[in-house]
């Protein structure tokens, strides 16, 4: 099995249908350890479906998704939870759990049915909260902290899961610009420091280009282009996929591409 070696996540000829509608066609991906991948593409292009196939939230066909060289179709939820952590778009909790309770839930895959969290689990949770700057919130109720804080808590829970890979589904799309940057920097620093691999669906192309090591551009269920931000964020790709006329400059500090959209395609709506 040479195809999938040394990749924490590999996708091999993955297709997915919702009823009759084909969402993903023959997706091939190899995720390298310790990098930050951004999955971008228009609404309905299949990027979240791809992520959900990898996390096995949707059940992929056999031999389509490999996690640590193992076929995901044969792994239990618990096995996968020890290898992949998922950060959803937003988390609304109806009940009064404290931040510590939520972060400790990340230890769930390691605790036996009649067991409960050990001191070691508590220490791991503490470390995760300190790494995400949420330790001061530990006794707060999850419903009384801000959206940005909550997202950091959810990332702490993902860290407490102690996995090699973190999957994120538009982790910042409901946050304001300040918190967006804060979360992106946090994820970025985690991939640098802890050899964590992050794969994140992103809405904001400029944020994606800024922070990702690699971008995966999806349109209509097909990977149109993948590579470094410079390779993927091009005038041609944006025109093809987003039907967008754009002007791309390089961020003077980071050198990463930055998109300035000029004008949508000249389609005038006649409305009388």
């Amino acid at each position: 099995m040479n195809i999938v070696s040394k990749h924490p996540v590999a996708v091999h000829d993955l297709s997915w249908k919702y009823g009759e509608r084909i969402i993903l066609r023959n997706i091939n991906l190899k995720i390298e350890r310790g990098r930050f991948y951004g999955i971008i593409g228009p609404n309905g292009s299949g990027k979240t479906t791809l992520l959900r196939n990898i996390s096995k939230s949707l059940v992929p066909a056999a031999k389509a998704v490999y996690i640590d060289d193992l076929d995901a179709a044969g792994l239990s939820s618990r096995d996968i939870a020890k290898k992949l952590a998922v950060v959803p778009q937003s988390t609304n909790v109806e009940f009064d759990f404290t931040v510590t309770d939520i972060v400790l839930m990340g230890r769930n895959p390691y605790i036996r049915r009649f067991g409960s969290e050990s001191r070691a689990d508590m220490e791991i949770a503490e470390k995760a909260m300190k790494a995400t700057n949420t330790w001061h919130l530990k006794d707060k109720c999850i419903s009384e902290i801000s959206g940005g804080e909550r997202q950091r808590v959810i990332i702490a829970r993902a860290l407490a899961q102690d996995t090699a890979v973190m999957l994120l589904d538009e982790p910042v799309s409901q946050l304001d610009i300040h918190h967006q940057i804060e979360i992106m920097e946090l994820i970025c620093s985690l991939t640098r420091g802890r050899a964590l691999t992050a794969v994140s669906v992103m809405h904001d192309l400029n944020l994606a280009a800024q922070y990702s090591d690699f971008l995966i551009l999806i349109s209509e269920g097909i990977i149109v282009c993948q590579g470094t931000p410079q390779q993927v964020i091009t005038k041609e790709n944006l025109k093809n996929v987003y039907h967008l006329d754009s002007f791309i400059v390089n961020n003077p500090v980071t050198g990463k591409p930055y998109i300035m959209h000029v004008e949508k395609l000249k389609k005038h709506v006649v409305y009388k």
Partner: peptide, 9 residues
């Protein structure tokens, strides 16, 4: 979905 990602069937 979250529960599933935390290893619960």
């Amino acid at each position: 979905d979250t529960a599933k990602s935390l290893g619960i069937e």
